[in-house]
Write a protein that binds this DNA or RNA. Structure first.
Length: 474
RNA sequence: GUGGUUGUAGCUCAGUUGGUUAGAGCGCUGGUUUGUGGUACCAGAUGUCGUGGGUUCGAGUCCCAUCUUCCACCCCA
């Protein structure tokens, strides 16, 4: 036997059932997006390298799949210039390179690879907005559901090819957008019958404010990354990490009230206010949160809960205001199943400043796993063939095909077994495909122009005229 | 990127300190039943033991490399 074929690490094949379940999630989500006024767009699978590189931090750059240019690099006309410090570069890992060496390496990489696979949907979306700004009507509400690729190490619920499902609005600073996104999360998960999710909310301005109060403005990212781990590694380890990042003991002690922050939205806000009383930006963040919370309390959510979580930080690189994260209902072991936030400056990297955006994302693969675990996929999802015609031979098969054609015209999913195989084999085929009805047309039926309809589950069968057969299967 | 883990039949997995011809269950094919499936019984087929090197008289078993699986970290959806 030849060597078994395989697929690359971190990729998957989907069978009919998986496709049906995935499209159920996607279609349900799309429906809600459209109810909220979002329009679909799509962007290419790969972008020019410079569109993506440098937008996700060093860590992100490392995980971008680069596409090798085609052609013969050694051919006279295409020759690539090797970096001057080639020998040094060969001895160092990415982290050890100096800035000038990095520039040199990037230049070389650009020479052999000018394109890269899409790493997320947000940056290509920003590119889209800037590129088509004259045709777009602002505020621009779009949704996008497409695969993205990351050269990551796969883990549970983490792949190298996976779908993202984003909805964003650009060109409006209104906090009503945030309010609507909270409602949208609630609506989508409600439509998926996934009750009891928690929508956690925070605000980058509050994080900035806290960093300011403890004198760690310059270490904002280190500070928030550490704080973000609170429910995972606990208070002591978080403090330890902050110390190791050079945050002062005095500052850490000022954080103490933060660790014991409890209670409902109102109480948390109260204690936050006292911590942040000297920080203008922090108080602004609180004001924004209060606005959103008040609106949501008045509007009411169907099944989700809105919760303030000051430790929520997420990929901080572009969020500037509200930060969202959705976690699965209690009892389900799964990380976040969605996230998002406001970014005030994303399009300025492509030359269009002052365009505020806010958006949310759904973790399709994880939602799939959660729905699977809780048994929330409807049974009707995989409606396969309803009736199989047993093939007794050429003449009989021909008569069957006529009936099959008529059934199909009535919208009944019907098929004829292609070969005049043994009856047992054909029946087994029906069983394995979960086809509930079988029609037998042999010599006898052919002469009397009747059809024997057999219900597989009960084993009962009856002889019917074509008209009655149609009726019975409708 | 760091540390660990996994790979044997279509699937799930056994396989002793290295020792003749590598096994089980399920599935598959055929038969009991030449026009009636799921059950039962009978018979049968299937493996470059992930791949490539090495050690050895001898390797599924030991060593090295590589790919793959899963997990923790980093990061993230």
């Amino acid at each position: 036997m030849a060597q078994k074929p395989s697929i690359p690490k971190g990729t998957r094949d989907f069978n009919a059932e998986a496709v049906a379940k995935r499209s159920y999630i996607i279609e349900t989500t799309k429906e809600q997006f459209q109810l909220y006024g979002f329009q679909p767009i799509e962007t290419p699978s790969f972008e020019n390298s410079e569109t993506l590189m440098g937008k996700y931090g060093d860590e992100g750059d490392r995980l971008i799949f680069k596409i090798l240019n085609s052609g013969n690099f050694l051919f006279e006309k295409n020759t690539i210039e090797l970096p001057e410090s080639l020998n040094t570069l060969m001895l160092k890992s990415l982290d050890e390179l100096s800035i000038s060496e990095k520039i040199e390496l990037n230049k070389f990489t650009d020479g052999i690879s000018g394109k890269a696979l899409r790493y997320d949907l947000t940056v290509p979306f920003a590119r889209y907005v800037v590129q088509h700004q004259n045709d777009i009507v602002f505020p621009f509400k779009r949704y996008q559901i497409q695969p993205v690729w990351r050269a990551d190490r796969p883990q549970k619920g983490r792949f190298r090819e996976f779908y993202q499902c984003d909805a964003d609005v650009v060109g409006s600073k209104s906090l009503f957008q945030e309010v609507e996104f909270v409602q949208l999360y609630d609506a989508v998960f409600n439509a998926l019958k996934l009750d009891g999710v928690t929508i956690k909310i925070n605000n980058r301005k509050i994080l900035s404010g806290i960093a300011e109060v403890i004198g760690a403005q310059d270490k904002l990212i280190d500070f928030t990354v550490a704080l973000d781990k609170l429910d995972k590694i606990g208070e002591e380890k978080v403090k330890e990490e902050m110390r190791s990042k050079g945050i002062s003991e005095e500052g850490i002690s000022k954080l103490q009230p933060l660790f014991s922050l409890k209670g409902d939205f109102g109480n948390q806000v109260k204690s936050l206010k006292s911590i942040l009383s000297v920080s203008e930006i922090g108080l602004e963040g609180i004001k924004e949160l209060e606005f959103i919370n008040t609106a949501i309390s008045n509007l009411k959510l169907k099944t989700a809960t809105l919760q303030l979580d000051v430790t929520l930080a997420r990929g901080l690189n572009y969020y500037t205001g509200a930060i969202f994260e959705v976690s699965a209902p209690e009892g389900v072991k799964m990380g976040s199943i969605g996230g998002g936030g406001r970014y005030d400056d994303l399009t300025s990297i492509f030359g269009k400043p002052d365009t505020s955006g806010v958006g949310i994302s759904f973790g399709l693969d994880r939602i799939y796993l959660v729905l699977e675990e809780l048994g929330l996929f409807p049974n009707t999802i995989t409606d396969a063939t309803k009736v199989l015609f047993i093939n007794f031979g050429e003449k009989e098969a021909l008569a069957c095909l006529e009936a099959v054609t008529q059934l199909r015209q009535k919208g009944i999913k019907a098929e004829l077994y292609p070969d005049a195989a043994k009856m047992k084999k054909q029946m087994t085929y029906a069983n394995r495909r979960n086809i509930p009805y079988v029609v037998l047309v042999g010599k006898e039926e052919l002469e009397s122009k009747m059809f024997t309809l057999k219900t597989m589950e009960t084993g009962t069968q009856e002889k019917l005229k074509l008209q009655d057969l149609l009726q019975a299967l409708l």
